[in-house]
Structures are given as C-alpha cells and as structure tokens.
C-alpha cells in the first residue's frame, strides 16, 4: 500500500532510517547509518569524496542494491519488501549512469525503447515515444545511429532519454557528467535541470563536482558512509 506523507514541503518520496550497507561479510561498510528524506520535486545533489557511499546510496534508492540494515521507504512502502522491484524500477525510476550503459548492438532509438517493453505499449507507441524523447534531448537526427557513432555527450543524452522512457517520477543520476568534458557536462546538467523543471521529476544526482551541486535545491554531503550535512534539514537546536 502506498502511503503519502505531506508536511507542507511536498509529498515524501524517500525516507531512509539507519540505512546500512555492508560488503564482504560485514568487513566493508559502505553505508554506516544514513537517515534522510527526499520529497517530490526536489533536486537533491549528493556529494562527497570517492568511496563515501554516495553511489551505494543511489543504487539502494533505485533498488539495484539492498540494505544490510535499516529501513528505506519509497512513498511509504519498504523497497526491500516490494514484491516486484522491477515494477518500481520500470515505472517509477529513471537511471542515468556515469558510463551511460547503452546497449552497443542497438541503435539510439532502440536503446530508448528498451525500458518500454515493460510498459505494455505497442511497437508504434514505443517508436513514437522514443522519437519524441530523442527530439527533446536534441538527438532526432541520430535515431538510427549506434552508440559507438556518438560523442560522450550525445550518449549521455540518449541515456537520459532512456531514463525518461516510462515517464518516471524520480530520476537517479550517478555522476552523469563524470565521463564528459566541461562543455558536454554543462549541456547535460542544463538538460537535466530543464527536465526537472518542465516535467517536475524528483532529481537525485550523485556528483563530486561542487559547481553542479550548487545548482541543486538541496545538497547532501557524505563522508565515510554517513551524511555529514544536509542543506534541506535544519539542525536541531540544543537551547530549551
């Protein structure tokens, strides 16, 4: 059952309480107890040094990885208890990865259509939607090209179009500019900002680039598997 929580700042989308993630039988701790809330329509940047757990957190938000301990809810429902997390990934989430992760044997238009196979749309609808999305990211002239024929920036734009294929409410972007030069990086961020504004999607973006983080409405800083600061949370006062 989906439970929505409102506190005047938008519907609660994610709520994490004491979230921990261990690897290697507990020897390696990627997350050491993360508490956070993310609301509908926010643009949240998660920053921190390499190995601080920001990508692990993003994967857990996207149900690509499971928590070792703690609670992680999406719209009030535990992600760990979802009967079919693929439904959640297919319809609620759009992923954008640093390495693009496009399928090399499929054309640009076909890559964008891939997630739509879980959307119950017809072939004609898939083609129409992919064309429309690729037009919105400025790649209508690249429909029949293969990923190897595109520049890094173009590949990332295809990945963004693919991430939006099933009209998700949340876009999770893991270092989307990490493999791009500054010009392409700027274009990608502008594109993500535009989509965030125009479509109203909740955007959670992991980056080590503080200039990009400054564009977000909220910045979460992480270190050693913990949240060390969150611009969206007012620190509790000790005064009576």
């Amino acid at each position: 059952m989906v439970e929505t929580v409102k506190n005047g700042q938008g519907t609660l989308v994610y709520e994490a309480v004491g979230l921990k993630k261990h690897y290697d039988g507990g020897k390696v701790a990627a997350l050491r107890g993360v508490d956070l809330q993310i609301r509908q329509g926010e643009f949240v940047a998660i920053v921190g040094p390499s190995g601080c757990g920001k990508s692990t957190l993003l994967q857990m938000l996207g149900s690509l990885a499971t928590a070792s301990e703690g609670v992680l809810n999406y719209r009030g429902q535990s992600i760990a208890d979802m009967a079919d997390p693929s439904e959640y990934r297919a319809h609620e989430i759009g992923f954008v990865f640093q390495s693009f992760h496009l399928l090399p044997t499929f054309t640009v238009a076909e890559n964008v259509q891939i997630p739509m196979f879980e959307g119950g749309s017809s072939r004609a609808q898939r083609i129409e939607r992919a064309t429309e999305l690729l037009r919105s990211v400025g790649l209508e002239h690249r429909l029949t090209h293969f990923p190897s024929e595109l520049s890094g920036g173009e590949r990332q734009r295809v990945a963004i179009a693919r991430g939006l294929a099933n009209k998700p409410t949340v876009v999770l972007a893991d270092e989307p500019t990490g493999n791009l030069d500054s010009v392409n990086a700027k274009q990608i961020i502008e594109l993500l900002l535009k989509l965030h504004r125009d479509l109203g999607v909740t955007l959670v973006l992991v980056t080590h680039d503080l200039a990009i983080a400054d564009l977000a409405t909220r910045t979460i800083r992480m270190k050693d598997g913990r949240v060390i600061s969150d611009s969206g949370v007012t620190p509790p006062t000790d005064s009576p």
């Binding site: 690509l64 079919d84 693929s86 297919a90 319809h91 992760h101 399928l103 997630p115 879980e118 991430g163």
Partner: peptide, 16 residues
Amino acid sequence: THEIGILLAVGWKRRR
C-alpha cells in the same frame, strides 16, 4: 552480464 544488468536496471522483469 553487463547488458543483463542494464536490462534489469531499466526495469525488465527477471522472467523477461
């Protein structure tokens, strides 16, 4: 493996 991982990440069901 990588490709199947991508398909799972974009929401493909395991049965698909």
